[in-house]
Amino acid sequence: MSDREISENSPSQRDAILGTLLGVAVGDALGLPYENLSRLRGERLFGEPDRYRLIPGIGLISDDTEHNCIVAQSLIAQGTDVDRFLPDFARRLKRWGILLPAGTGRATIIACARLMVGVSPQRSGIFSAGNGPAMRAPILGAAIRDLDQLREFVRVSTRVTHTDPKAEFGAWAIALATNLSWQDQELSPQRFFQRLTETIADEPAEELIDLVAKVIASVEAGESTTDFLDSRDLGKGVSGYVYHTVPAALHVWLSFPNDYRNAVQTMIRCGGDADTTAAIVGGIVGARTGTAGIPPEWIAGLRDWPRTTRWMKELGGALADSVETGATDIPPQLPWWKELPRNLAFLTLVVGYGFRRLLPPY
Rank of each mutant, 00 (worst) to 15 (best):
T80D: 09
G271F: 01
V71Q: 02
S12H: 07
H251P: 14
R39T: 02
N68G: 07
N179A: 10
P306S: 09
A201C: 00
L319R: 01
G222I: 10
G352I: 11
G170M: 03
G237V: 12
E297N: 09
Q265E: 09
L140S: 00
P257R: 06
G31R: 00
S38W: 04
L315F: 15
E152W: 15
S128A: 14
P341K: 01
G283N: 08
L21N: 06
G59A: 05
A129M: 11
W182T: 09
P296R: 06
A142K: 05
S62Y: 02
G125H: 07
A345N: 09
S74I: 04
L22D: 00
W337M: 15
W172K: 03
R39M: 08
R159Q: 15
G240L: 12
Y34S: 01
A134P: 02
R136Q: 12
I6A: 13
T277F: 02
F193T: 04
W311I: 07
R145P: 01
T309N: 08
V160K: 05
G23W: 02
F346W: 09
T245G: 05
L334R: 02
I6T: 11
I98N: 06
G118V: 07
E314T: 11
D88C: 15
S74T: 02
A263Q: 02
P101F: 05
L21Y: 08
K94F: 03
D202V: 05
V351K: 08
G354I: 09
P189E: 07
G316F: 11
L147P: 05
A16R: 08
Q13C: 11
G222V: 07
I58K: 12
R4Y: 07
F193A: 12
L234F: 04
G141R: 07
L315C: 13
P247R: 04
T266I: 04
A137P: 07
G293T: 13
S224G: 06
A25E: 02
R151L: 06
I299H: 04
D63R: 04
L140G: 04
V160I: 14
L99N: 05
S128E: 09
S181C: 15
A205G: 00
R53D: 00
W305N: 07
H244T: 07
G290M: 00
G103P: 02
R39H: 01
L75K: 04
S62K: 05
I17K: 03
R4T: 10
L147Q: 10
A129E: 00
G103M: 06
L180I: 12
I76W: 11
T325K: 15
G290C: 08
Q122C: 03
T289R: 11
D321C: 14
R261A: 13
D233C: 13
R41Y: 05
G316S: 14
A248C: 11
I17E: 06
P296A: 11
P295K: 10
S12L: 08
A129L: 09
L334D: 03
A72I: 10
T309P: 00
A287C: 13
